[in-house]
Amino acid sequence: MIESVTKKKFLVPSDLSEVQKVSAKVLAFLKPLDLSQAFLFDVRLCLEEALINAIKYGNSLRKDLKVALEVGYDDTQVQIAVEDQGKGFDPKELKICTSEENLLRTRGRGVYLIHQLMDRAKYNSRGNRLVMVKFLGK
């Protein structure tokens, strides 16, 4: 994580009904930045996609496992780290959702959207921690 001026940590239960609640808390936390609606839409979408993947596929909806979420910002960027307790995955194994033969598939768009809407998105080598960055003023 960046040495942000302002940081907050959340421990999220592996329950999909928590996603919207946590996301609302994060957006409230970012309020002092006075971000545009479009910026907030992107941050919210990427955060929720990352949380859903961590809860559903990382932690397999196991109530005894948590997702660690860290959000930080300074005057140049917003950074979000999402870490589950699962065995991790290889993002390279995901099908390319924009290729014609995969357009009718119903999975795989969340990670793709994260990579498109954030300025940086990187998984750790185990594949259970995603760090996303979006620069301000974009």
Partner: peptide, 16 residues
């Protein structure tokens, strides 16, 4: 006002 990947997937299912 908002749609995520599950919403997109639902519309794809409806189209199919």
């Amino acid at each position: 006002t908002y749609i995520d990947s599950s919403g997109l997937a639902t519309l794809v299912e409806m189209l199919k």
